[in-house]
Design a binder for these strands. Structure first.
Lengths: 182, 182, 182, 182
DNA sequence: CCATAAGCGAGACGGTACGTCGGGTCTTGAG
DNA sequence: CTCAAGACCCGACGTACCGTCTCGCTTATGG
């Protein structure tokens, strides 16, 4: 019979600490800030990163409405919104989670299932609308767009700004074959 | 008055340990396997990851000749070759380096300069040949292609096989506007 | 409204666990083996050691009849019987209780009152019979005899066998001043 | 190449903390007070109790000169001095060490060899002087005297004062058979 | 041809965080 | 209303690595 209050306190603490200073994100620190025993964290999560992931997924506003307009414009808006959400502390936290996923296969799976795949599904849906593309091509396009985003986020060689969003959108739409007639 | 033998031993040890078990890659382990004092490592590298990066850059065969044929075919070959090079222990090691770069700004810079940018330059060159694209579009295309590669490498949601290389090449070329006449 | 069945189960469990492996003697283990909630233990005993003490006092055969014969012979028999009772799992358990008493003043008092003093009283009575010794000398003799026993039990530098019992008896009796005449 | 300064700091810290508050005697606390990493303690000692034992043996003034006079008087002085040394913080520390020895066989052996046996040897020597007693009887007498001391120290049912020392001495000497003539 | 300073192996050191264990308290739900 | 089941807070444990710091020993000039 899990204590819901403690759960919320832990997620809050983890998010706050992660936002303030990722290096200070210690299991002890989370426990202390949440007013909780360390064991209570380990009882329910396999690692502090799982806590952060939970917090992020549960707390993050995931509504990304691409608005209206041409497919290209809608795609550009979607991408720009996605990029913007990385400006806050979310960006560094996501980078840290992705990093963690490289060392911890179990976490990687949760990370993929709870965070990556849902977002891929949204973009895939958006790309599918009013386009003749089929499965694998859609997947590849999603990889190219989110891949470009993650790549810049992780490597830091280029800005994730509105201009980049528009450029990606244009290139993606241009790669579309002309809609088959009839 | 650097001992070149020790340097090679350290790089060998680092690579061997990284290939065998990334978790067992500790500075102590590298030093022990190389028959070297820890200080000798810290004297020449700021962290074990810098050692691994050095080893990778120095040892890795970086010759990627795209062969001949249509631009799309050459691009596909280039990508397929790139993907193939990740099949060995190189893939996990690259993942680990990228992960480390998320925590260590100093290392991130070296990682970008010694590993990421050179490869970007090669791809950029390949994309520029016989295409009317200008700067920022080229960069964005590079981001989309290498981004897709890294994305799959890091998240592991899709294979990095020859089919994916061909598909990316087709989409990239299709995104090209028709070559301006005259 | 105490559940007597539970009480017995707890004492049984404590004794069984203590006999099997003193390190495995945790409150959780006792509760689990007794099929009882931890709280039920804490409701009636201040600590697991109090449980063990209760079990020992309640279960242990404390009848020590010194038999007949000369005072020295009767004393030797008493001591030998006492030593023999330590051969079973009782010895280690007593050692653990004595150890616990060093850290826990409250327990120490109970330990003294329920276990140590009653045994002292028996020995004191035995020594008093047909001897001219008065109070403080009697106490000191008791301390020397039981002291020697505990000392060997706790330090383990010498055996607690029949020979040692006889030797102690002889020395104790010899220390007696000749019975005043008249 | 062990750091002697650190060793001394650790022993000092352990002794100071043990004297101040035995419950506060934590490995972390010792390390913190000594300005030392915890690992440095674990590198050289198997447990904090081994540290305390080392400190005690190394620091304790062990010179116990029984003075002059009759054998009984000399014995009484020796015992009184021994008792007096327990008045300081040494008493509780010894109790704690004895307690620890009940749970930790490895420590028990060291405790016996470094602390108990040397003191036994001194008393044995004293009892042997000018007495016709042979081996096993001497051992038993030592057990009775030091046993009585430990017994009172551990159980706390009687004072370890000068009067008790005298009484023990008298009884011990009385238990001696008359020196065989010529 | 030595001396002297650098590089070296070895490994102890101060630190930080980890994940686990057990104690004693508090909560919940079934009987 | 009791009580098993077990979650909770807490504090200490012993371990793993990190990056720094002596130690002597080797070695390779440069006076």
């Amino acid at each position: 019979m899990r204590n819901e209050q403690a759960r919320q306190d832990i997620l809050d603490a983890a998010l706050a600490l992660a936002a303030a200073d990722l290096d200070g994100l210690t299991v002890d620190a989370i426990a202390a800030r949440a007013g909780v025993g360390k064991q209570t964290i380990y009882r329910w999560w396999p690692s502090k990163w799982a806590v952060v992931l939970d917090a992020l997924v549960e707390r993050a506003a995931t509504d990304v409405s691409p608005g209206t307009g041409t497919p290209e414009r809608r795609l550009a808006t979607f991408l720009a919104t996605s990029f913007a959400s990385l400006e806050t502390s979310t960006g560094p936290v996501l980078r840290a989670l992705m990093a963690r996923a490289q060392f911890d296969a179990e976490f990687a799976e949760v990370f993929r299932g709870r965070l990556v795949e849902p977002r891929r599904a949204v973009l895939r849906e958006l790309l599918a609308e009013g386009s003749g593309r089929r499965g694998a091509d859609l997947d590849a396009l999603v990889d190219m767009l989110f891949g470009a985003m993650w790549y810049r986020l992780l490597v830091g060689h280029g800005a994730l700004d509105r201009a980049f969003a528009r450029r990606l959108a244009r290139l993606a739409v241009a790669s579309s074959p002309p809609e088959p007639m009839g």
